[in-house]
Amino acid sequence: MTKRILALLLLFVTSIILLIYFLFTLSGENKNADIYSVRTFKSGDGWGYQINKKEKVIILQPYMPCIKWNQPFPDEKSAQEIGELVLSKIRNNEDPSITREELNEKLQRLL
């Protein structure tokens, strides 16, 4: 009977430890989702975007990527859209680079 009580006590303690672990893990994921942000800004005669982690700028993009001669985005909405795409790649642990095809696709949808 003592072994049975000891086994139940061990099972109870293990369950509590796992519950605490999962609660902290889930709350940490929610905090990480909110630490990134996209902000647009005027850039020359157009728009650019920046990606922030908390309040620190981690990407500053005053021009459209993949385009020669440093052309800014034509409007704030297109800068915001591409910034959101980059941010989704960061959150998914992907390469945040934008291809010419991705840029063209987003810009065509906005026109």
Rank of each mutant, 00 (worst) to 15 (best):
M1S: 07
I5Y: 10
I5R: 13
L6Q: 14
A7Q: 04
L11M: 06
F12K: 08
V13W: 07
V13Q: 12
T14M: 00
I16S: 11
I17P: 00
I17N: 07
I17S: 08
L19A: 14
I20D: 12
F24W: 05
S27T: 10
S27A: 09
K31G: 06
N32Y: 12
S37E: 08
T40L: 02
K42N: 05
K42D: 11
S43N: 00
D45F: 02
D45Y: 00
G46D: 01
G46V: 07
W47E: 02
G48M: 00
G48Y: 08
G48R: 00
Y49I: 02
Y49N: 00
Q50H: 03
N52T: 11
K53Y: 13
K54T: 12
E55T: 09
E55K: 14
K56C: 04
V57D: 03
I58V: 14
I58N: 06
Q61G: 01
P62D: 07
C66G: 11
I67F: 04
K68F: 15
W69S: 15
Q71V: 08
P72R: 03
D75E: 06
D75K: 06
D75T: 01
D75L: 01
K77I: 06
S78L: 05
A79N: 06
A79H: 05
A79I: 09
E81Y: 08
I82D: 04
E84Q: 15
L85F: 07
V86T: 06
L87A: 09
K89R: 06
K89T: 12
I90S: 01
N92M: 08
N92G: 08
N93C: 09
S97A: 15
T99E: 05
E101I: 15
E101S: 13
E102Q: 15
E102N: 07
Q108E: 14
R109M: 12
L110R: 02
L111A: 10
